[in-house]
Design a protein around this nucleic acid. Structure first.
Lengths: 337, 337
DNA sequence: GTGAAAGCGCTAACAT
DNA sequence: ATGTTAGCGCTTTCAC
């Protein structure tokens, strides 16, 4: 029986073992671990020492089961290849601190479409809350999901649900105006699937163009990846009447545009100015030097982590709606037309 | 009580609820879900339908607890900012398929030092096996760890423990010989902490240099990141007697070298040839164009995932030791001195 | 300050 | 083919 379950490995040490070793009841051991009142300081120390010595490890799953709680924090990441999600993760981890070991990661399977599967895996893991970066879904569906498990949105705002995000409207306006200021008039915007909360940048771009009396030109790629942008761009850049500047939804897409541009024989920024979004590490490399909008993803992650912890502790806390200001970083991928 | 646990949320549906709804015992429901023999096809379907309709979700943690098994697969990743780990993750996920929802990610907290914390969190999550990419620890400690929980090493070989890796010796030799073939004689190698299983590239570089009658020059950075390489390189590249070529342990470090080079006023490849390792997406970008060794990380991930699944199913399987051949991809970061 | 007993959602003998 | 029973490791009343 045990042999099949843990072949050649020792049976895990339980609180029962610790209790027996110290000569007390299991209850006391349980109390001691949670620092619950009703156990003397001496006893507590004795128990902790014995546990450590025996190699005891707390079984969080069993604890959650028994207490009907859900202490784990789920973190949903859209795309591991986009470094901005690594930044968010880093921030979240910094914020959750002690609860770090209860952080369960889930990465989207499909960057292009709605991905309930990855979120479901989090729900099935019985997390108490989900930090989502970024849900490709309508506000309505996010709210619906939030009815079954608390959600904290990062880099996106959904009314009525905890949201920690950056002012996309301001960021996109700064990006577009930068291009406008350089004298560009044919400025395209490349993005992907459109959902409320993902369309801020696009809408802001359109408004800014129209305010300047210019015609916006939006290209919708299959998803937010470099590859998708590359595919979408080949058409855009090969026409005779191509734009002289492109504002991309994120740095990944900007890189795709850049690759497509060079493939079409265009130089950046001489023939084509490109602005990205995220100010990722790649954008900063010599030879890439991408003008980009910095939304400080790590800081957003920290905010989301803190919000999650807070809601877990006090579920009735008012809905968090935290917006930070992005910053345009001008580099060498943009120039006069 | 329940209110505090699931404030404003419905109590999760259990097998008991499903059993009651269908009018059978809980046991039968449990059997039906696992496709265990002893339940008629009709009954099974009835139960499954009812479960779906009620919104039942299997509680894997409770199941593991009851069956004294550990069905979850832990995946330890050294660094989320290094895209090679995203590739490995992708491969692992492809391989585990159905078990995808039982995949628990853990990311190292410290890229420079031994990180038992992240591995511990996996053990505390009661995973049945850990796929490790990459453990910064001695072979002895990895074996020690493998005594308490099965380990599958990826991109590293530890004798006696499942290992899926690429032939670092061949890769490093190809890289060094490429530089040698171009006519370089002063070739440095930049790497980080040295452990058995991480030193293959370094050793191979040294051997190849010595075979060519040249003096090897190894620089040890704090860790395997771009930043660490950048710091380490400033000294290396600012001397008057600087190398004309550098072979880096990975692409991240190659990028750091590259940045440091440009900061020191050197051009790549005119003044400095650079070879990386991993053939990451960044290496392929126009303007980066990094010569690099491709170890096909995704394929390694697939192999590791399959090995993990296999060991979970049949613990007595012989130790896996799978080595694949890397390939040197020559690009524009290397030239004659 | 300490312990006995019940139960969380599930599985797995062992009946029937 | 279906049900009974006894746990898994832990928390949590409630009594001593």
């Amino acid at each position: 029986m045990n042999r099949a379950a843990f072949p050649g490995r020792p049976r895990p040490v339980t609180q029962e073992d610790v209790a027996r070793a110290v000569g007390v009841s299991r209850t006391l051991v349980s109390f001691a671990f949670r620092g619950a009142p009703g156990v003397s300081a001496d006893m507590r120390q004795t128990i902790l020492d014995a546990a450590k010595q025996l190699g005891y490890r707390h079984n969080a799953a069993a604890a959650d089961l028994a207490s009907k709680r859900a202490s784990a924090i789920g973190l949903f990441l859209l795309d591991l290849r986009n470094e901005v999600y690594a930044d968010i993760f880093q921030g979240v981890r910094e914020a959750v601190g002690e609860a770090r070991n209860r952080l369960i990661l889930s990465v989207s399977q499909s960057t292009g479409e709605i991905d309930r599967g990855s979120v479901d895996s989090l729900i099935e893991a019985r997390v108490g809350i989900i930090i989502a970066a970024t849900l490709l879904d309508s506000d309505a569906r996010v709210r619906e999901l939030a009815a079954s498990v608390p959600i904290v949105n990062v880099t996106r705002r959904v009314a009525g649900v905890d949201s920690v995000y950056s002012d996309d409207w301001a960021g996109a306006r700064a990006a577009t105006q930068h291009l406008l200021g350089l004298g560009h008039t044919r400025i395209a915007h490349v993005t992907a699937t459109q959902y409320e909360g993902h369309e801020g940048r696009r809408r802001s771009y359109i408004a800014t163009m129209e305010n300047a009396g210019l015609a916006p030109e939006v290209v919708i790629a299959d998803d937010y990846t470099q590859q998708a942008a590359e595919r979408a761009a080949t058409v855009l850049l090969n026409g005779t009447d191509r734009p002289t500047a492109v504002f991309a939804h994120n740095d990944e897409m900007a890189l795709g545009l850049r690759e497509a541009g060079y493939a079409a024989g265009l130089s950046v920024p001489e023939d084509l100015s490109i602005v990205g979004y995220d100010n990722s590490r790649i954008a900063q490399l010599h030879g890439i030097d991408l003008t980009s909008v910095d939304m400080q993803a790590r800081e957003l992650g920290r905010g989301a982590g803190a919000a999650a912890l807070n809601r877990l502790a006090t579920p009735d806390t008012p809905v968090v709606d935290r917006c930070t200001e992005p910053r345009l970083i001008v580099r060498n991928s943009t120039a006069r037309p």
